[in-house]
Amino acid sequence: MRKMTVAEAIREALRLEMKRDERVFIMGEDVGKFGGCFGVTQGLYEEFGPERVKDTPISETAIIGSAVGAAATGMRPVPEIMFCDFLTVPMDQLVNQAAKMRYMFGGKAKIPMTVRVPVGAGMSAAAQHSQCLEAWFIHVPGLKVVMPSTPADHAGLLISSIRDDNPVMFFEHKMLYGVEGEVPDEIEPIPLGKADIKREGEDVTVIATSMMVYKSLEAAKELEKDGISIEVVDPRTLFPLDKETIFESVKKTNRVVIVHEAVKRGGVGAEIAAQIADEMFDYLDAPIKRVAALNVPIPFSPPLEKYVVPDVKDIINAVKSIAR
């Protein structure tokens, strides 16, 4: 094992895949010489050259659309969209083209592309630079959606995403880039659709994504002092969703809190809650609770932003509201 930050782990996974498979290439705004807006692709331009680490104009539609075209014709592009918020710009290429091509063509096309996207609030970047829009994409059949938390998960899941023959949305939290964790010396692919239990517990299942995994683990420590033991389940991929691991945990605790940073209305939590209600109703001893951002755009001013985004105490409150 070695220590790596999330950014380093992503970079390492990109390196490994680019070395392994020459069809893999990166493109996006300022990803080359500049090393990416958040420094994630630093050094890759020097190592692989401008043909495989391509700086693009500010043209998100062309970034995604050309990735679709290249993927359909034998390449394995890894485009980066600088902020999740800018995904609104190439939405047609993602939703109507990338996601549906294979189906519309009767199974005759493959679109192996992985779109890397920084999400999240926490830097007073305001309403157009802070969103978590992952829920939009689980609503689109044809796309896979990955949203890891730890450095090791970012690395392993990115490798699987790049090797996957389908379009994958890969959401990275920008406030996690500097967070360190253990990464195996030999990075192995982690299969999509496999959740991970980040902490075992008995009383309440907390299903958390991305940054909220860390907040839930903090909440776990606090709750322990009050004699409440939570199990923190990180789905890691939102589609395909590892229902089995989630359901096993629910069977054990009979109580569920779902935590994500995106706004609550129509969020991923709603989908997961519905699936649990559907199939695990008999195991539930309390209503399923969701902890999420308030249903507002992310405001600029620090006290407002802090208030809108869910925090450790919101998780603690939700757990306590249903704990035995």
Binding site: S124, A126, A127, P297, P299, F300, S301, L304
Partner: peptide, 14 residues
């Protein structure tokens, strides 16, 4: 980011 700002602190520079 003050409430006395143009956007009551909701917008910021951008």
């Amino acid at each position: 980011g003050k409430e006395t700002g143009y956007c009551k602190g909701k917008g910021g520079s951008m």
